[in-house]
Design a protein around this nucleic acid. Structure first.
Lengths: 113, 113
DNA sequence: CAAAAGTACATAAGAATCTTATGCATTATT
DNA sequence: AATAATGCATAAGATTCTTATGTACTTTTG
C-alpha cells in the first residue's frame, strides 16, 4: 500500500529538512531511498517532486550544496544552513502539532475504527 | 497560530467526509465554522477551497444534497451516500496510518524537541 | 434606522506543488 | 551484452488551494 499522493502534498519540504537535520548531509537520490526504506515503501518520493523542492530550499538559503564525484558520476550533497536549522525546528514542530490536531478531528465519535 | 496552508492540502476532502460521518448532514458554511471551532482557529477552511471540493464530492457520488430555505436564504445540506460512507472509512484510516508514519519519521533522533 | 458584520452560496484567475514523462550519463548486475 | 540501478535534471499538464470578487439575505450595533 502506498499513500495517495494528495496526502503527501505539503509535507515533502518538512520531510527533507528533517532528514537533513538527522544526517548532516545527504544527496537527492539517497533521500528517496531513505524515505522508502523508513516507511516500508509507503511513501515514495518521486524525483520530479524532490529535485525542484531541493532547488527551492537552496534558493531560499535553507540548504547549501557540495558537488562530489564518485568516479565520473556527480553527486550533489545537501546540508542545512543555520537558517535551515531554525526553519527545520519550526516546520517539524508545526507538523507535529498539526498531526495532533488532525488526530483529534479523526477520533471524534469514532474512537473504535 | 494558523497552520501553513500547504499542510492542510490533501486533507480537506477527508476532513469533510469525516464531519459528515459524525453529523449525518451539514451545510458548507457550517463546516467552516465547525472546523474552526474544533481546532481552536488553527485550521481555517476557506470557502474558495471548500465549495469546489463539495462539488467534486457530489459529482463523484460520495455525497447527496438537499436545498433548504431559512427564510429566503438558501442552505445546501450535504449527506454521505452509501459509497461515501465506505470511502470515508477508507480515507480516515489511510490518514490515520499516514500520520503514524509521519510521526515516526519526525521522531527519529529528535525524541526530545 | 442605517451601517456594519455575519450568514450562505458561488466562481474565477493565478500560484503552488505534484505527477508523469522524458532525457542524459555512469555503474553494477545478470 | 543487456538490463537494472544510480544520479542528476527539466517540462507539460493536472490538481488543489489562495485570493478576490460577486450576490443576497439577516442580524447586530451605534
Amino acid at each position: 500500500m502506498i499513500y495517495s499522493s494528495e496526502l503527501i502534498k505539503g509535507t515533502l519540504k518538512t520531510i527533507v529538512l528533517k532528514m537533513l537535520e538527522d544526517n548532516t548531509r545527504m544527496y537527492g537520490y539517497e533521500m528517496t531511498q531513505r524515505v522508502k526504506e523508513l516507511t516500508h515503501e509507503k511513501i515514495q518520493i518521486t524525483e520530479g517532486a524532490l529535485y525542484p523542492t531541493l532547488h527551492v530550499l537552496e534558493e531560499d538559503g535553507l540548504v547549501t550544496t557540495e558537488l562530489e564525484y564518485i568516479g565520473k558520476r556527480a553527486r550533489k550533497y545537501y546540508s542545512l544552513s543555520p537558517q535551515g536549522k531554525t526553519k527545520t525546528k519550526e516546520k517539524v514542530s508545526e507538523l507535529a502539532d498539526f498531526m495532533d490536531t488532525m488526530k483529534f478531528l479523526l477520533d471524534i465519535k469514532t474512537q473504535s475504527a
